[in-house]
Design a protein around this nucleic acid. Structure first.
Lengths: 211, 211
DNA sequence: TTGTCAATTGTCAGTGGCTGTCATTAGCCT
DNA sequence: AGGCTAATGACAGCCACTGACAATTGACAA
């Protein structure tokens, strides 16, 4: 049983996060001030900064939860799987379990709306990409260990992760652009894009038809 | 012959850029204020913001020049080359002609020092990655046109560019980490990493030896 | 050459993100 | 109940950045 203090803190944080997401998705990220968020929860601006490193941090907090989940899923993949397959399965797992990760804070639609805000707000997109680079670093170490390679001297795990992450970014972007925001659509795009990986590199452009 | 006004403007901009790079590389990006830069050139802070969209913009201006050069090089590659080869050659050209692009503003060592500042300063790295994403978009369109594909519906050009860019990011990062800052070292890393692309994806980890 | 026009710059005031400090409040524990 | 500690609020201040307006300076024609 956790103490009252801890429960209060957790509620404050969640309230701030919810208010932030609400405002970001309805009013826009730039037009929302930290004071707006703090006022909505009736705490001081200073308190906001005690829970979040900055405005960006609040905007990316949801995404951060899903990323953590994804990385854990990669770690949990059986070690006999080829690395690319492990990454692929982990991503698909991530999308399948999106609800249980996010729903504790906001409905999934809010999450998707927030995702679009991130992609369309330059400063948020930048922060998101930097965070992705950090994740690539972690994945590199995880894969290197799995495969018994030394990430410090062997560039191949890092390359593999970079390539995979590149494909995932393209996939997410197209998913948002298509306007078809179902988990199923995301699954299909992921699978088909990863299948295109080999052919795309050879430079032999067979006629392309959507699957 | 250009007018006196234009020459003055150009000189002011270059002076600001040089002062900014000087301060960023010696004092650090965060510890340098816009006032510091403006004072060093003896203009008002307001004037700085008339030449650069922000502090970031000044920090990334040099890199921007080289990126522009690279994109132009891609456009200039003969259309019979396979796309990946065109990108590869354009990158190598870019490194070979680094001097003539950069030297008009600062010595090349300054450029390299600034590059390290970018990689080691979170907010600059983020901005750099976002800019790279924009470049990927441009390259996608260039390649799609070259190959007679429709970038809007066919994901393959975008995937190819994303993969290539991923490899280049890994390469640059390792180049900076290795501490061997010669153009030759960069060439070699580029070539060898691109050669590893295929094998890295198959998941068959042959013993790796540096070339 | 001089006067007019337009571009460049400086000054000033203000906003918003973010931090340090310190007093106050509120939960915890004996 | 009372002392301890963690959480909060209030305040002052820094810095990036912007809008508005006035002052300056180069351009160009009469």
């Amino acid at each position: 049983m956790e103490t009252l203090r801890e429960r209060k803190k957790q509620r404050t944080r969640e309230a701030l996060l919810r208010a932030a997401i609400e405002l970001f998705t309805t009013e826009g990220y730039e037009r929302t001030t930290v004071d707006d968020i703090a006022d909505a929860v009736e705490v001081s601006q200073r308190t906001f900064f005690r829970y979040f490193a900055g405005k960006e941090d609040a905007a990316l907090a949801l995404d951060e939860m899903t990323v953590t989940r994804f990385v854990d899923a990669v770690r949990a993949r059986p070690s006999h799987e080829p690395p690319l397959e492990a990454l692929r399965q982990a991503v698909l797992e991530g999308w399948d379990t999106l609800h249980e990760v996010v729903e504790s804070v906001v409905p999934v639609e809010r999450f998707l709306a927030m995702y679009r805000v991130i992609e369309s707000t330059p400063v948020l997109l930048a922060a998101h990409l930097r965070r992705s680079a950090e994740v690539e670093e972690v994945l590199t170490r995880v894969l290197a260990e799995r495969e018994g390679l030394d990430a410090a001297t062997d560039p191949r795990p890092r390359l593999l992760v970079a390539v995979f992450s590149g494909v995932m970014r393209v996939t997410e972007r197209q998913w948002l652009t298509d306007g078809e925001f179902s988990v199923e659509a995301m699954r299909e795009l992921t699978v088909s894009h990863l299948e295109l990986l080999g052919p795309a590199l050879t430079g032999k452009w067979f006629p392309y038809t959507k699957t």
